[in-house]
Simulated scan of single mutants.
Amino acid sequence: MTKPTKKAAPKTKATPELKATPEKKAVATPASASAPPAEKGKLAKTELTDQIAQRTDLTRKQASEAFDATVEVMLDALKSGKSVGLPGLGTLSVKATAARIGVRPGTSEKIQIPAGKKIAFKVAAGLKDSL
């Protein structure tokens, strides 16, 4: 009977360790969000809106609404064929792509790729020099 007792003991020990791990991750996430320059990777929308709220007199909700409105205006302009200039960052524009013949990977079959449009981004000279 001592063997089942020993097997039950490690299961109870493993459970607190599993509970402790998510708590550590939850604590680490806000700390990394407050210091994005030290962290490499993607800057999420929530982090962007948090930083906008910190640098302005807006609440988080107002910053999120302002960000959403900005993105909507940019998308509407791009859909209508206009370019969008972002001072200090660059310019987004719509470019037409020509129809062409491509090769299907794996089978080497020739396929016709239709003409279309794509979004192009040209980096601002000041940003390009500072990178």
Rank of each mutant, 00 (worst) to 15 (best):
K11V: 05
K13C: 01
A14P: 00
A14G: 08
A14W: 06
T15G: 01
P16H: 08
E17R: 09
E17V: 12
E17N: 09
L18Y: 07
L18G: 13
K19E: 09
A20Y: 03
T21I: 13
T21C: 09
T21M: 14
T21G: 01
P22E: 06
P22G: 04
P22R: 08
E23N: 09
E23Q: 12
E23W: 00
K24M: 15
K25V: 15
V27P: 00
V27I: 04
A28P: 01
P30M: 00
A31M: 14
A31E: 10
S32Y: 08
S32I: 10
S32N: 12
S32T: 11
A33D: 14
S34N: 10
S34V: 11
P36I: 03
P37F: 02
P37C: 02
P37I: 04
P37W: 12
P37A: 15
A38F: 06
A38V: 15
A38T: 14
E39I: 02
K40T: 11
K40N: 11
G41R: 05
G41W: 05
G41I: 00
K42F: 07
L43G: 04
L43I: 15
L43V: 15
A44N: 07
A44D: 15
A44E: 08
A44S: 15
K45N: 07
K45M: 01
K45L: 02
K45Q: 00
K45F: 02
T46S: 07
T46M: 07
T46W: 02
E47G: 08
E47F: 00
E47T: 14
L48F: 02
T49D: 06
T49R: 05
D50R: 08
D50F: 01
D50E: 08
Q51A: 14
Q51H: 04
